[in-house]
Design a protein around this nucleic acid. Sequence first.
DNA 1: TTGAAAGCGTTACCAT
DNA 2: ATGGTAACGCTTTCAA
Lengths: 335, 335
Amino acid sequence: MMVTIYDIAKQAGCSAMTVSRVINNTGRISDETRQRVLDIMKEMNYVPNAMARSLVKQESRILSLLITDITNPFYTSLARGAEDAARELGYRLLLANSDEELAKEKEYIDTVLSARVDGVLFAPAGDASLPNLKRLRKQNLPFVLIDREVPGIECDMVLGDSKEGAKRLTSHLIEQGHARIALLGGSRGVSTARARQAGYEETLQLSGLPYREEYVAESHYRAGEIARHVKRLMALPEPPTALFAANNFLALGAIRALRDQGLRVPEDVAVVCFDELEAGFVLDPFMTVAAQPAYDFGVLGIRLLVDRIQGKAAEDWRRVVLPPTVHLRRSSGGT
Amino acid sequence: MMVTIYDIAKQAGCSAMTVSRVINNTGRISDETRQRVLDIMKEMNYVPNAMARSLVKQESRILSLLITDITNPFYTSLARGAEDAARELGYRLLLANSDEELAKEKEYIDTVLSARVDGVLFAPAGDASLPNLKRLRKQNLPFVLIDREVPGIECDMVLGDSKEGAKRLTSHLIEQGHARIALLGGSRGVSTARARQAGYEETLQLSGLPYREEYVAESHYRAGEIARHVKRLMALPEPPTALFAANNFLALGAIRALRDQGLRVPEDVAVVCFDELEAGFVLDPFMTVAAQPAYDFGVLGIRLLVDRIQGKAAEDWRRVVLPPTVHLRRSSGGT
DNA sequence: TTGAAAGCGTTACCAT
DNA sequence: ATGGTAACGCTTTCAA
């Protein structure tokens, strides 16, 4: 169907091997022959078959990036970083989206395994991703974890400093005079959610504030859940005066829920969150956040991965931690 | 290196062909043999090699989606639709991002061609994408255009109704009493930008309003450009009282620029735009927009593509047009 | 119900 | 400097 090196060889009056050598710039070839082959390749619109090549070379020069939410700006920035880094290193990037669903994640593992990609940059849905990662490990496919770690698996990873960020956001609220601070946390099955909660608790303790069970909510991203949590919190006898949302998605839901209840931010409730919000917030840079260097997550993740694939990595697993930057804005009364 | 059907065959005491038949559920095989093979496959952690299979079957069951901006919510929604539709139809989706750059687009063409994907869902950077599309056509690789059309190429496509949306937004501004309406348009090298400008002009004309050259700006997405355009517009002897931005990105830039000049929206200038803004705007559903059904763009695009690949499509090229929905909100004084 | 051989398009290896 | 042959892992075709 498509033009092959044999077709080229026939036209050029040489062997397929010679054509292959021209394509790969390998071995010695007379300038005359090279030019003739090149001309004919162009003329016949030759396109190399990457699958055939990968089959014999036992490498695809393709990396794969799995993210959990393609609509989250944190992950799209990360994807851009990964893309740029992969390109620079001579790899293609296959992008996929698990939607935080374990089933899709598993399906994806099958895909990359049978596609014989050279490595995977992996943002796990949560601790429950362990079997999926073990599958990669068993098949000897190099991978790097990004954003979240998974207990039970040792590997290279690029993480944010969730605990530190949470501490700083919580401290900030305390400095603003808040003593009743609620946590709208993510699932405890996700490492970042746990770390953010830990930072919150520790800061309360260090400041001599009580830890109140009823001020802590755990969200599993189900419909209407955030609104229910917020409603419960604000209906407490002593409702919180400030809210720490563990990520941008939760913050959005929380603010919407507060608004629906006629509460103003920050006048009635101060709100801070982890992760930057969408670019559109330039219209109204409103939220106090702990922003993470998402693009760099992608770049460094790919670099670790490629080092590992090419055997340039140290034997020990590497753990890169990128600190967040806190931006004080109106939502916390910070500006 | 990895387990092959020959390894399985040896263990199972049968031929590779038998293993192949078990994997593909093809031909007749005794239940006993089948079970034995299945057991051994599991035991040995067999993973089929998709490249080897594609090489002989001459199809990859992979489709490719090219978008021009992975950070734009229009395209990420579209990508989700495409992903879901592809999955449903038994295809994998390879996602790529051209960043509106022709060079990346060209590079991408090479990739999909040599990867031997079965088809491409293509959001072109603009009219200048023509040679890239011709390349696909020459290689007989099925493709479907989404969002933008490209003069000079006939193919299946899924488009929005840019002209109609522009008319309705412009009419709305006129109904609000505006007579001096500026257009912040996209590049004239992009079909949607032209159609939106046409809708704008036509509506002015039908309403008996003059078309003023100085009220029209064309943006090529260069740094600082939007701010300069807005500054020029607002410095005119008779500055516009309303602004129609041809897409969400331009609208964001425009509003920021207006704010920097101390102008309020909508009190000093009304603003409307094409495309919905980020989800984060739930915090402040502020902008009057012509929203497009982005997810459906993806779904329908993939369906057209697969029909074409599988030979189920009519001979004639199909052109699906999805109408926008106008949401009246505060930015235009609409609510 | 099962198997042997050929071939998909390429590169590695050994010749010449 | 160039070519022949085998191999990558699989499916198709034909035969038993």
